[in-house]
Every structure is written in structure tokens, then in C-alpha cells.
């Protein structure tokens, strides 16, 4: 197995804050690797070091087989960076932006032009090509940003919170673009606060908190870490919640969580079929009407809660509105 990105013991300190406290990371070539963590966990610092924008205080990192500290110029030939801001020129049109970035990648005027046409087509921006990027919607600007980050079809692409502030439709557009890139063989390191995003895109996820890695694995493995499946019971009458919790507690491997707002009780279980049968019987005996009973895999949100003792983001729904052109 070859790694497109390797980091060992990366450290970075700003005054009294330790942004990275010995981060280890290994990203398999040709995959999407999610870097998951709350604000201030050190995700962006890690990306800035790996993209040669920032020097680490200690530790080493290789991107595409090249040391980022000693061979930064060569690393820059092999990476694309799509940062937290949509870093495009807002006065220039989409076409002018891409042609400029193409020339700065030394494609030459003619190849910069043809590459621009390809990218506009691929990111569905052909119709908006001659409008200034400042008039684009949030999703369109992000797509232009992505296109600018892959002028050369970089072997390794870094996406730093690519969908922060986008509405659900725009997020889906960005996700589709990322999937198409990976199909072409690009390795993607994706940082995100949205657990759903990592779940959707990443084949492996590293969870980081306070500057170091606290878990690593496929999304399924991570969900497995907190005790397999979860059983949810939604009751019709909120007064039945304690009874339902008691019924669940008999089969659960941990204390059930009760959410009065949704009238739902949730707990991890081991034997899904047996647990389900027993809970249904217990509720029936107690004369409790269940509106819904379901066995499901846990969400990464629950994984994060279990690993760190707090939620990844108090507001897990994406904020921000799309500015219409």
C-alpha cells in the first residue's frame, strides 16, 4: 500500500496554544481521507503544513513522496489546495480566473485556454463562464475554486472544509465534483466538521482533537468502536419515555439516551434481532405505543461524542445561505 500523504509527530505552537501536538497521519493513495474534528482541533494547521504554507516546529511530513520541509517547490507541483475561503478573484470572470491560474501553472496560453474550457464544462460553469466570479452563488464559487485547485489534475488535493457555509444543494454539487476527481485517481485529504460529509466521501477517517489523532479507521470501523448497532424507540406519549428507557436498558450495552424533544430513546445493542424482539415484547407488556422502532448503524456524530465526551459541532446542520446571482 502506498501513502500519498504521511505525517509523523507534527507539532506547531502559537504562543501558548498548541495547535498540533504530535499529529500522525497516513493517507492511502487514490482514496479520500477525512480529517474530522471540531473548530480549533488543528485540522487547518495540518493542511497548511502539508501544503507548504506553514513550517512545522517538529516532526516530518511527506506529500507524494517528497518532504514538505526540504522540497517545498517540488511538492507545490503535485498538490492542489482548496482552502476555507473560495480563493478566486471576484472581479475577474470564471474563465479569466482559470486562464490566469493555468498560466501560473505554466501551461502556456493555448493549453491554459483549452484546460479552462474542460474545467468549466466539468464543473458545470460553462454558462456562467463570462460572468464575474463575485456574482456567483456560494456553490458556484466553490466549484470554481475546486476547478482552480485542479488545473494540473494534481496527484494530491487538499480540501479544507470545502462545504462550510454552503446550503445542502451546493454541498451535494461539491461532493459530486470530489467523487469525480477520485475516480480519476487523485488522492484527497478532506477536513470537515460535518460528520455526514466524512461519512459520504471518505473511505478512511482520522478523528483529531486538541492537535492529535484520537481515532483512525473506516467510517464503519469507527462506528463499530462504540458498540455496534443502535436501537431507537420513538414513543407516542412522552410519559412513556421512562418505561421505554427501562425496556431498552435490559438489552443495551450502555445507558440509553433519552431525548424528550423527539420522544426518542436510543441505546447501543449487540444482538440486533434478539434485542429488537425483546424490546417489542417489553413495550407490549407495558402497554406502551411505539410510533417507530428501528435498528441502525451509529452516526459519526455519536462516535465523536463517545470519543471526546462532547459533540463535534453544537450546530451540526450547515449554516449560511446561498447568495443568488
Amino acid at each position: 500500500m502506498t501513502f500519498a500523504v504521511v505525517a509523523e509527530g507534527l507539532r506547531k505552537r502559537y504562543g501558548d496554544t498548541e495547535a498540533l501536538a504530535g499529529l500522525d497521519l497516513a493517507v492511502t493513495q487514490g482514496t479520500v481521507h477525512g480529517l474530522l474534528g471540531p473548530n480549533g482541533a488543528g485540522k487547518s494547521t495540518a493542511v497548511r503544513i502539508l501544503t507548504t504554507l506553514l513550517r512545522a516546529d517538529a516532526g516530518r511530513a511527506e506529500v507524494a513522496g517528497l518532504d514538505v520541509a526540504t522540497r517545498p517547490a517540488e511538492v507545490r507541483h503535485r498538490i492542489g489546495l482548496v482552502g476555507q475561503h473560495a480563493a478566486v478573484d471576484e472581479i475577474l470572470t470564471g474563465r479569466q480566473n482559470l486562464e490566469m491560474f493555468g498560466r501560473l501553472h505554466h501551461l502556456g496560453t493555448r493549453r491554459a485556454r483549452t484546460r479552462t474550457l474542460e474545467l468549466l464544462e466539468r464543473f458545470s460553469l460553462t454558462d456562467a463562464a463570462d460572468r464575474p466570479a463575485g456574482q456567483y452563488s456560494g456553490g458556484m464559487r466553490r466549484r470554481l475554486d475546486l476547478a482552480a485547485g485542479m488545473i494540473l489534475v494534481p496527484p494530491v488535493l487538499f480540501l479544507d472544509e470545502p462545504t462550510t457555509g454552503l446550503d445542502p444543494r451546493a454541498r451535494t454539487e461539491v461532493w459530486d465534483a470530489v467523487r469525480a476527481l477520485v475516480a480519476d485517481g487523485t488522492t484527497v485529504l478532506l477536513t470537515t466538521q460535518y460528520l455526514e460529509e466524512a461519512d459520504q466521501l471518505a473511505s478512511r477517517v482520522s478523528v483529531i482533537d486538541s492537535g492529535h489523532r484520537i481515532a483512525d479507521g473506516t467510517p464503519d470501523e469507527l462506528k463499530g468502536m462504540i458498540g455496534g448497532d443502535r436501537l431507537d424507540v420513538t414513543v407516542r406519549d412522552p410519559r412513556d419515555l421512562p418505561t421505554a428507557a427501562a425496556a431498552l436498558a435490559r438489552v443495551a450495552t450502555a445507558d440509553p439516551e433519552v431525548d424528550p424533544d423527539t420522544r426518542r430513546v436510543s441505546a447501543p445493542v449487540r444482538e440486533r434481532a434478539a434485542a429488537l424482539t425483546e424490546v417489542v415484547r417489553a413495550l407490549d407488556d407495558a402497554d406502551v405505543t411505539a410510533e417507530d422502532i428501528a435498528v441502525r448503524r451509529p452516526t459519526l456524530d455519536e462516535v465523536f461524542l463517545q470519543l471526546t465526551g462532547r459533540r463535534a459541532d453544537p450546530d451540526t446542520t450547515p449554516r449560511g445561505t446561498e447568495v443568488a446571482a
Binding site: 501544503t51 504554507l53 507545490r76 480563493a87 491560474f101 501560473l104 482552480a148
Partner: peptide, 18 residues
């Protein structure tokens, strides 16, 4: 600098002096 355009330039294989 504020819009991240400077960072994008710095992450690209262009002459840093440019």
C-alpha cells in the same frame, strides 16, 4: 491576503517573487 488568494498563490508552483 484576507480572501485566501495569497495562500493559493503560495501553494502553487509559481515563482514566489511574482
Amino acid at each position: 491576503a484576507a480572501r485566501g488568494v495569497t495562500d493559493r498563490f503560495r501553494s502553487m508552483p509559481m515563482a514566489p517573487s511574482a
